[in-house]
């Protein structure tokens, strides 16, 4: 069953185009990484999925229902963690968790206790006194303490320390094991890489690349470091080899996935003494789509399209 489906989604704010024909499909039980830098349209997409914003055109369905018209009904089945967590300063964290869970339609008491403990959150403090990380924890605990079928998580770990981030990842695995669907918007690539079954990379309000990590990696290069008996200078001439660097009998280079087999065979003929190769990280995938533009555009592009 398809849980999230958007087709040709468009949204502008004045002269800013936030979404420019966004297509996104997430089937049930999948953890879907939604990747892009600030201002690429991630938060706008999530808010349209929540029915908080109305798309100018296009088609948005959650669980087969219209995200705008049936918003209230849909919200019984989902939980949301916003990227920027604002809380009512004079309510305590515990009170806010309870309110949100009750308004969402029920609270799993054991789960609440367990999560407060795991995230080391004091529920009796007024939220005015919480740090950014603790405010984030309130939203995370409130979301995972519900029995939702869909989790919309908009940069949920900003402000969490590495221990809490690990705890958060365990929570995602738990809800996934329970059959829930997760849309994880992030610019923290390691997080998406650790959790996601599939990722979509969004750029200027449209998805430019979507697939499993294996699919995406196939399109890119592997980084190889080898030590050979004979000098490996002949590699320079081989097709698919990029940026070879020679250093005291060792060579490091990137190679296109399609040429990998041939290049490794050539290395082997030179007398391999050691070989390490690693697949491209998501970081590298990301930079391929954004690398040049981030340098050029980052200073001028604001947060307008969030």
């Amino acid at each position: 069953m398809t849980v999230i489906e958007t087709r040709d989604l468009r949204k502008t704010f004045g002269s800013t185009t936030a979404l420019d024909g966004l297509d996104l499909v997430v089937p049930q039980g999948q953890v879907h990484g939604f990747l892009g830098p600030n201002g690429s349209g991630k938060s706008t997409t999530v808010r349209i999925l929540l029915g908080l914003l109305r798309a100018d055109s296009g088609h948005v369905r959650l669980f087969g229902q219209d995200a705008w018209a049936d918003a209230t009904e849909l919200h019984r089945r989902l939980a949301y963690v916003p990227g920027e967590v604002a809380l009512w300063p004079n309510l305590t964290g515990g009170e806010i968790i309870d309110i949100l869970a009750r308004m969402r339609g029920g609270l799993d008491e054991a789960r609440r206790r367990d999560l407060l403990d795991r995230f080391d959150l004091d529920p009796s403090k007024k939220s005015r006194t919480y740090s950014k990380g603790n405010r984030q924890k309130v939203a995370v605990v409130a979301a995972f303490a519900s029995r939702a079928e869909l989790f919309l998580l908009d940069e949920p770990t900003s402000g969490l320390d590495p221990l809490m981030e690990a705890e958060f990842q365990r929570c995602v695995h738990e809800v996934k094991a329970g059959g829930a669907t997760v849309l994880l918007s992030s610019h923290i690539l390691a997080e998406a890489e650790a959790l996601s079954d599939r990722v979509s990379i969004i750029k200027h309000g449209r998805v430019v690349q979507s697939g499993s990590l294996t699919d995406l990696r196939h399109l890119t290069r592997t980084t190889v470091t080898a030590e050979t008996a004979a000098p490996a200078t002949s590699l320079t001439a081989m097709s698919g080899v990029h940026q070879p660097e020679f250093d005291d009998g060792r060579v490091t280079f990137d190679v296109d996935s399609d040429d990998l087999d041939e290049v490794i065979a050539a290395l082997s003929r030179l007398g391999l003494r050691s070989l390490t190769a690693h697949p491209p990280t998501l970081e590298e995938l990301f930079l391929r789509h954004y690398g040049e533009e981030i340098q050029v555009e980052a200073p001028t592009r604001g947060d307008g399209a969030r």
Binding site: L52, A71, H75, Y80, A86, W88, M103, L152
Partner: peptide, 17 residues
Amino acid sequence: ESKRVEHVLATRTSRTQ
């Protein structure tokens, strides 16, 4: 304006309610 309403409206609470 404070975006706190996101929490409320992401539950089964409708805007009218």
